[in-house]
């Protein structure tokens, strides 16, 4: 079976762990629990006619005191940049992580995931920003780890990109 490593990257408290939990176990918890180091999960998906085992690296969130070490990214075939729509600065963090990731492992497929779509009325990031990013060629997905909206689609979309890449 094809195996692919995917890294979940983003600022702290954007919902990386919640997205993985929703995707792998279909569960969600409102309680925020920070991730230390890396949590690893697996899930097999079918893309086209191929089964792909995804190895999901849920890496601790970046904050002003703690940068994500690029050594964790080795062997990644793709990654998500997770953004919390209610916190505008998490988009900036996502792009910094994109630059560091490309510096470490080169250009591999990635998707911009705007999470917390269930509280979109509280977003600081407006629809136009998302449209502009799409217009610039980025793959943009709105998700809610809470309701599950867009989660499966995001993982399948990245899997497809990795197989094409």
């Amino acid at each position: 079976m094809i195996k692919k490593k995917i890294c979940m990257l983003g600022a702290f408290s954007v919902g990386k762990t919640s997205l993985v939990q929703q995707f792998v176990k279909s569960i969600f918890s409102d309680k925020y629990l920070t991730t230390v180091g890396v949590k690893i999960d697996k899930k097999t998906v079918t893309a086209g006619d191929r089964d792909v085992e995804l190895l999901l690296w849920d890496i601790y969130g970046e904050d002003e005191f703690q940068k994500v070490k690029t050594s964790y990214l080795r062997g990644a075939a793709g990654y998500f940049l997770i953004i919390d729509g209610t916190r505008g600065d998490t988009l900036e963090t996502a792009f910094k992580l994109r630059d560091r990731t490309e510096g470490a492992i080169g250009e591999v497929p990635f998707i911009l995931v705007f999470n917390k779509a269930d509280i979109e009325d509280e977003w600081e990031i407006d629809g136009k920003t998302l449209e502009d990013l799409s217009g610039d060629g980025f793959t943009v997905v709105r998700t809610s780890a809470k309701t599950g909206m867009g989660v499966e689609e995001a993982f399948l979309s990245l899997t497809q990109k990795m197989l094409e890449g």
Partner: peptide
């Protein structure tokens, strides 16, 4: 680390 990081992140939020 988890205890410290949790507090720090909550404080930042």
């Amino acid at each position: 680390q988890s205890v410290l990081q949790q507090r720090l992140n909550e404080l930042c939020l």
